[in-house]
Structure formats: structure tokens, C-alpha cells
Design a protein around this nucleic acid. Structure first.
Length: 680
DNA sequence: CGAACTGAGATTTTT
DNA sequence: TCTCAGTTCG
């Protein structure tokens, strides 16, 4: 064992032995295998504190996370630990994407990238791909842009180019066609001085690889590299980590293979399993003590994950008490399930639980709908993750003006801006503009284009000299979006635009150009979780994926049905072990109590489906469960509801004794539900 | 050119 | 049932 514990510095008191080992091993590679709730952020923060206390300048420390929220949290923890100390700067904590944007902004011009490159989000990328598909004379129905996008993204994550698409055995008509579209797509991106999400990492890796002269700066600027959620890194991110730590070899990664749930977007959790091989001489520390959940929850989690093969065996333990049993609710329908959840939520909040300590988790976004409906009906505040502020139509419209103003080559943004508000410029005109055939414009079109151009150049002039928030405010008016909103009584949209200005004011301090360019990059890179930073109240609704890294006192995992969770589709090559890890992640979000539920009948696409309970539920020890069922027939089992297509020969909606009707419906009239919804 | 309409297809998971 | 891309018509 370790002999250092007697001379542990005072600032590390409060860490357990394993955490201390992790915090004090500062030279060479270090792998921290941190189970769920084992205090990894805490350990990371203290390790950084230790580095600083032992003489490492703060500015030489880099920490990379996946979400802005994680980065911010880490920064705050470190900030609190360092409070009042003069450290001559702060550690650099950032997401992979922000870090790479930072590097690319610095060296962009040296690798042929404009200073004002535009970052395409998923939607931008899709519409560009769709247009290219059509321009190449292909039918977007035959070769879906979504599929092409996924293939490109996956390949870029693997550091592959179009020529390597479908390399080896998977080559097909699809991969060949996708490669063709991809090549065109790259050309269009270059023309527009734009990059997509994956390019941000990819181009940075290429830069560090191909330009040792430039790489040297970054390799020496940061002497200590930390990577959070290492199991979620893809090939490109792994390569980035390797390149950045090349000179000094001081790389510390934290992760947990059991929580790897992003393989579908190229994450290779093998990265964490192979760390010792990839970084010889690595020290490995296991954090197995859980400080988050009750013993009951942890026992359930352990038996669930034990069934997987691809993992390093570890067993979480806690010194906390047994806690409540896990409630398992069998619902008759999705409406019944939602009523149950809402009823429990109401009971909890009534007993003094803060709504923000309750989260409802589901496998797929569309499941949120019914919960929203019921929460709304009962007037319970909630916050839905997954609808990003920056993806709202009006917000994208406004940003399009600014992006196009600063990057005139960004014709995607131009298309968007020109069409909103509508100003009588149609497709023909736009196509001529993009093609540079201005002489073919007729007189009327020319005038309208001139008006649009004037607007854009005014915004550009403003952006180059005013603060970020002032530019946004100016653009709201000048673009005509304000008038448009007022005309259509779209108060809320206008509110959102004003909100955008106030978000932008955080960047005012950087001055005009720098501030705006940071703002635009951040706007493109916000994650779902980042919405949580701002929200201060309400029950949280989100997918299990989005809940990663978060914790709540009370967790509801809903829709636990075969086919749904674990999710299965026909064409599917998905990994059943990953579904199980996903469930493991869901369960381990809970501190105090866990509720699981499934519905016997569920409406999908307007027809009723009958589902078996998820196999995962069966993996939990019966002793840990508290079963509840409702025989209540809902008032509105969603209209006509004659079960079509299910084909299971299942019975129609179970008919029940009318006296049971209100057992879980708590008297809420469903008429209200409909009314509220129609108004929305 | 753009509003209004129509019909098909859709629901994994996301930085 | 809902959404969105594509089409029609004024």
C-alpha cells in the first residue's frame, strides 16, 4: 500500500485513499477509473489544486470535458479551492470542441482557414447535404441526407476521408454514393468558409500532426493534460490527446467503461481499456466508493451491469444506508404511466422536495410529450432538455444575419437571412446570386437584393465596432425581424431575440470582433445540458443520454419496455451491452430513490402497441423492488384507440371496474388537458 | 413569389 | 398524430 498517507498535505484531507493517490500522482500517465458517483470531479479538482500547490503554474494546466457544463463545474470547483490564492492565472478548462476552435482561430490562416469560419450545426449540415444530393441529380429519398450525414460524421470521427468510406467489407452502393456526396460537400464547405462539428476536431488533429512547428507551441504551453469521460472519446479525440501530451507525457484521464453510451457516434470505449497499453508506465487508480446513492440503488446498479462482458470488473460500495426500495410501477397505458409519475411528483414536492431534485428520464425524446402534457395540466413547472435555445427558428435567423455579415462567403446563412422575413426574393434570384450571375437578375430582383445587401453591410459595420449585445440588438431591428414578430403577434419570438442579446452581453468584454466570434462559436457548440445552468426551477425531463454526469435525489425511469428500452430496430447492429450501460447510467443518477415504470399498452404513431416489460427490470433483485400496479382505466385513452397493426392478438384495452377509475387519476379532468393543449 | 395545402413518413441516442 | 418537404394556386 501507499506510504504517503501520513504526510498528506492538509488541503487533500477529506479525500479517501484512492482519491488521494489519484490527486498526488503527477508525473506521467494516470488512469482514474471512477465508478458512478465516486467523486471524480472532486478528485480532479483536488489534483489540479495539488499541482498548483506543488509549484505548477496554473496556466500550464489543461482540462478537457465533453460539455460546457462539466467544464464550468470543474472551473468553479477549482476556483473555490484556490479562492484567495495568487496563482498567476487559471487552469484552462474547456470542451474538446471549444478547445479546438480556440486552436483553429489562432492558426486558421496558416492552414487556409478563414478567421471567421462558420460552424455548421446539424440542421445546417443537413440542408446543405440535401441540396447537394439534389444538385448531383440524386433523390434524397433514395439516399437520405440523415444517413449520409451520419456516415460522414462517423468517418470523420475515425479520421477517415471519403476514399476510405466503406473500405473493406462494408462497401456498397450507399457508401460509394455517400462518398460522392461527401466530396462535393467538402468543396461547398471550403467555398463557404465553413466547418462542421467533426471538422473542428479533425482539422485540429491534422494541424498538430502536419505542422510540428505550430504543434510545439501547444505541446509545451500545457504541461498537464486532463481528460474527463475518457470512455467517450473517439479516434480523433484520442489522437488529439496523444498529440497534446506528446512532449511531456503528463496525461491524466478519468472515466468508466460501464458508462460508455456514445459508441453510435464513434466513441471507442476501448480507449479506456487500452490506456495502459497506449501510455506505457501508466498508473491506474480505481475509485469504487460511491458517495451518491443509497445501498439499494447501488445494489440494483451492480447486478445490472454485472451482466455485461466488455468491462473491467469493479463493484461500487457505499457507507450510506439501505434507503427506500425501488418502486416499480406497471401502467396500463402511457397516459396511466404519466399520471402515476405526476402524482408521485406532486406528493414529493408537497412533502418539501425541491422540484429541481426530481428528474424524469426516458430512452427517446418523443416519450417526453405525454409527461409534458400531464405536468402542464397540473400546473407543475418543468424544464425539458433537448430543445435548444440556439436552434429556435428566430434565433437561427438572427444569427444567420450576423454570420453572413461577418463571413460573406457563408451562403447558407445568406439563404436563411434572405428568406426571413420574406422580402420578395425567391429561389431563382437566390440561385443566381449564389452562382454569381448577378447580371441575369431582373430589375425588380436587383432592387430587392440591394436592400438586403444594405441591411447586411450595416450589420457588418456595426459588428466591427460595437459590442456583441449592441450588435444583436441592432440586428433585431435592422433585419426586420422585430417588425415581423410584432406584425404576427409573435411576442415570444421577440422575447427570445432579446434574450439572445442578453446572452450576448456576456461577450461584450472581449470587444467587437473577438467577442462576436466567440459568441458565434459558443452558440454553435452549446449542449443540451448547458440549458440547465440557466434554469433554476422545475422538474427535469430528459433522455438518459442527456442525463449523463448529472445527479438528482429522485429519478423516474419511464417506458421500460422491450423494444423501447432496450431499444431495438430492425436494421439494427446496435450493441445490447450499450443499452444495458445506458440503463445503468439511468439508475445511478439517483441519490435517494428510484422509480421505474412501464406501460402495457402504448400509443405509437397513433396506434396502440402492446409491450413486454423490459428485461432490465428482471435483472433487479426482487427484494429491492416495491411493485405497484394500477387497474384504473384512463378517461381518455387517446381517442378511438382501436389497436391496429400490433398483431399480437392482444386484448383490447382492459375493461375495469368503474370504481377503480380514479385510483390514480387524482381527479384531474382530461378536458382541461385538451384545452390547454389547443391553446398552445 | 409565397401562402396554403397535401400527403407521406416518422421516433433512438448528440458534441 | 404530428411534422415537414414538396406542390399548387392566386
Amino acid at each position: 500500500m501507499c506510504h504517503m498517507s501520513h504526510d498528506t498535505p492538509h488541503y487533500l484531507h477529506g479525500l479517501n485513499d484512492a482519491q488521494k493517490q489519484a490527486a498526488t500522482h503527477i508525473v506521467g500517465p494516470l488512469l482514474i477509473v471512477a465508478g458512478a458517483g465516486a467523486g471524480k470531479t472532486r478528485t480532479l479538482a483536488h489534483r489540479i489544486l495539488h499541482l498548483i500547490e506543488t509549484g505548477t503554474p496554473a496556466v500550464q494546466i489543461l482540462a478537457i470535458t465533453f460539455t460546457n457544463k462539466a467544464a464550468k463545474e470543474l472551473q468553479e470547483r477549482i476556483g473555490a479551492l484556490l479562492a484567495g490564492k495568487n496563482t498567476g492565472g487559471v487552469p484552462f478548462a474547456s470542451t474538446f470542441h471549444s478547445l479546438c476552435v480556440y486552436i483553429l482561430r489562432e492558426h486558421g490562416p496558416q492552414i487556409g482557414l478563414s478567421k471567421y469560419f462558420t460552424i455548421l450545426d446539424k440542421g445546417d449540415q443537413l440542408s446543405l447535404l440535401r441540396r447537394i444530393t439534389k444538385e448531383l441529380g440524386m433523390d434524397p429519398k433514395a439516399i437520405a441526407p440523415e444517413k449520409v450525414s451520419a456516415a460522414i460524421s462517423r468517418a470523420k470521427a475515425d479520421l477517415k476521408g471519403p476514399d476510405q468510406l466503406g473500405e473493406g467489407s462494408n462497401r456498397s452502393w450507399f457508401t460509394d454514393t455517400a462518398a460522392k456526396i461527401w466530396r462535393q460537400y467538402e468543396e461547398e464547405l471550403t467555398k463557404r468558409k465553413s466547418v462542421d462539428f467533426d471538422d473542428i476536431i479533425l482539422k485540429t488533429v491534422n494541424l498538430l500532426r502536419d505542422r510540428p512547428d505550430l504543434a510545439h507551441y501547444w505541446q509545451t504551453r500545457w504541461q498537464h493534460l486532463h481528460i474527463d469521460e475518457y470512455q467517450d472519446t473517439n479516434v480523433a479525440q484520442y489522437e488529439l490527446a496523444r498529440l497534446l501530451s506528446k512532449q511531456h507525457g503528463n496525461i491524466c484521464v478519468v472515466g468508466d467503461a460501464d458508462q460508455a453510451i456514445f459508441s453510435w457516434r464513434g466513441a471507442q470505449f476501448e480507449n479506456i481499456l487500452h490506456f495502459e497499453r497506449d501510455f506505457p508506465g501508466a498508473k491506474v487508480v480505481l475509485l469504487e466508493e460511491n458517495y451518491r446513492s443509497t445501498k439499494t440503488i447501488l445494489d440494483a446498479a451492480n447486478t445490472i451491469i454485472k451482466k455485461n462482458n466488455a468491462r473491467v470488473d469493479k463493484k461500487l460500495f457505499t457507507s450510506r444506508g439501505e434507503g427506500d426500495k425501488i418502486t416499480l410501477f406497471q401502467a396500463q397505458s402511457e397516459s396511466n404511466e404519466a399520471n402515476f409519475v405526476v402524482k408521485k411528483v406532486r406528493e414529493l414536492t408537497k412533502s418539501g422536495v425541491k422540484a429541481t431534485e426530481i428528474a424524469i428520464l426516458y430512452r427517446a425524446n418523443w416519450l417526453s410529450r405525454i409527461f409534458e402534457e400531464k405536468l402542464l395540466r397540473d400546473g407543475i413547472p418543468y424544464q425539458l432538455l433537448g430543445t435548444k435555445f440556439y436552434e429556435r427558428r428566430e434565433v437561427k435567423d438572427l444569427l444567420a444575419y450576423i454570420r453572413h455579415a461577418l463571413n460573406p462567403d457563408d451562403t447558407e446563412s445568406m439563404r436563411r437571412a434572405i428568406a426571413s422575413p420574406s422580402r420578395g426574393i425567391g429561389e431563382t434570384t437566390v440561385e443566381r446570386l449564389v452562382a454569381g450571375k448577378e447580371d441575369e437578375l431582373n430589375r425588380g430582383a436587383k432592387e430587392k437584393v440591394e436592400i438586403f445587401r444594405t441591411i447586411v453591410s450595416k450589420i457588418r459595420a456595426k459588428a466591427l465596432e460595437a459590442t456583441v449585445s449592441d450588435t444583436i440588438k441592432y440586428a433585431i431591428v435592422t433585419s426586420g425581424l422585430e417588425t415581423e414578430c410584432l406584425k404576427n403577434n409573435e411576442e415570444e419570438r421577440l422575447e427570445n431575440l432579446r434574450e439572445l442579446a442578453s446572452l450576448g452581453s456576456k461577450y461584450d468584454e472581449f470587444g467587437p470582433e473577438e467577442g462576436m466570434s466567440r459568441f458565434l462559436a459558443d452558440a454553435a457548440l452549446v449542449s443540451d445540458q448547458d440549458d440547465l445552468i440557466a434554469a433554476t426551477q422545475g422538474v427535469r425531463l430528459m433522455t438518459v443520454h442527456a442525463s449523463k454526469g448529472l445527479e438528482f435525489d429522485y429519478i423516474f425511469v419511464v417506458g421500460l419496455e422491450e423494444g423501447l428500452f432496450p431499444h431495438r430496430r430492425f436494421d439494427d447492429s446496435s450493441d445490447p451491452e450499450e443499452e444495458r450501460r445506458l440503463f445503468y447510467v439511468a439508475v445511478t443518477r439517483a441519490r435517494k430513490k428510484l422509480f421505474l415504470s412501464h406501460a402495457i399498452a402504448r400509443t405509437v404513431f397513433g396506434s396502440t402497441q402492446f409491450n413486454q416489460v423490459s428485461e432490465f427490470v428482471g435483472d433487479i433483485d426482487e427484494d429491492l423492488l416495491d411493485r405497484e400496479t394500477s387497474y384504473a382505466q384512463e378517461w381518455n385513452f387517446d381517442g378511438g384507440g382501436s389497436p391496429r397493426g400490433g398483431g399480437y392478438g392482444a386484448p383490447r384495452f382492459p375493461r375495469r371496474n368503474p370504481y377503480d377509475q380514479r385510483t390514480d387519476d387524482s381527479g384531474g379532468s382530461n378536458d382541461i388537458t385538451w384545452e390547454v393543449f389547443k391553446k398552445r
